[in-house]
């Protein structure tokens, strides 16, 4: 085992490296403040586009990808990654639905206790992560020789592509498995920036009252070039799809500007957006908790405010 080597497991991306992956590399940069590190990347795809993007990343020693890949289920990937990871002191992966599904399965195969949702790296052994929906920040310490970290991507800056000099290494792919099989996928065609990558996010809550009224939010988003998010209440009520949920159990984001419209601000929602640089709250209830975290609050009926905003922008 080489403690000074980190393996970054890249999630498959639609194009290029993928925003989440670039931010995981930002966490590698953070660890390098404490420890000189050799960094290798492993892809869970053999898409030439992602291989090219990975090779272009600066300060990467080696980019590995599988010669063949039966599927990308955790049952297939975990044992394969466990054998690849054995010589690394650190394994990093994004703490999103891909990484959260995969990392604990990989860790258990290595008899390792992983640390998920890491928001800061304080030393080679000491990390921060939020608990209780962000009501506390835990400083955790481990002496495990291998440290498996799920990186909360909103907490780290993306590394920009550079002039990479990584070696390209094709490795034997994982064996197939017959435990799980993909039946269907409903992926959402993105018409707007992706929620976790957007500079501006407008989000709606129960105050929007129904699915149709979200069109007002989409129009505002298009004026701002923004992504659209939602509170759990709005998703539970069926106004929008689950992948738009911001909060403790949805996506955690930290855009430059977050505009919360008709969102009361439950603790579990605040856990997903309170690291945004500038927060605007629009709500007709002056006592809504969202105003406690808002830089700019406007107490007004959103059905008056939204059309005016759209006109004035």
């Amino acid at each position: 085992m080489n403690n000074a080597k980190v393996l970054v497991v890249l999630e498959p991306a639609e194009s290029g490296l993928g925003t989440a992956n670039a931010r995981v590399l930002g966490a590698v940069t953070a660890l390098r403040q404490h420890l000189p590190l050799e960094c290798d990347l492993v892809l869970c795809t053999n898409s030439p586009m992602q291989i090219d993007a990975a090779v272009a990343m600066p300060d990467v020693a080696q980019v590995m990808w599988p010669d063949s890949l039966p599927d990308v289920q955790a049952e297939t990937l975990a044992p394969w990654l466990a054998s690849l990871a054995s010589s690394y002191g650190y394994v990093f992966i994004a703490s999103n639905s891909f990484g959260k599904n995969l990392l604990p399965r990989l860790a258990a195969l290595l008899d390792n206790q992983p640390i998920t949702d890491v928001t800061a790296i304080d030393s080679p052994h000491r990390f921060q992560r939020p608990i209780y929906a962000g009501s506390a920040i835990a400083s955790v310490y481990t002496e495990q020789t291998q440290k498996l970290l799920g990186i909360r991507t909103s907490a780290f800056n993306a590394v920009a592509p550079g002039r990479g000099t990584a070696r390209k290494v094709v490795v034997p792919g994982p064996a197939g498995q017959c435990q799980s099989r993909l039946v269907s996928e409903e992926t959402v065609a993105l018409e707007r920036p992706e929620l976790t990558a957007a500079r501006v996010v407008v989000a709606g809550g129960r105050g929007l009252l129904n699915r149709d009224n979200f069109n007002l939010l989409y129009r505002l988003a298009d004026k701002l070039g923004a992504a659209v998010g939602a509170s759990r209440a709005a998703v539970d009520a069926g106004f929008v799809a689950n992948d738009m949920q911001v909060g403790q159990t949805g996506k955690v984001i930290a855009p430059e500007l977050y505009i919360a419209v008709g969102i009361s601000g439950a603790v579990q929602h605040l856990a997903g957006m309170s690291e945004s640089r500038v927060v605007v709250a629009i709500n007709k209830d002056p006592d809504a908790p969202i105003f406690d975290v808002a830089d700019y609050g406007l107490v007004a009926d959103l059905f008056d405010v939204l059309p005016e905003l759209i006109t004035q922008l």
Binding site: Q73, N96, S97, F98, S180, R181, L182, V183, S184, E185, E186, T187, V188, T196, A241, N242, D243, K251
Partner: peptide, 10 residues
């Protein structure tokens, strides 16, 4: 429930 939508596995 995934970041990009829904997926059904058998």
């Amino acid at each position: 429930e995934l970041d990009g939508g829904l997926q059904t596995l058998a």
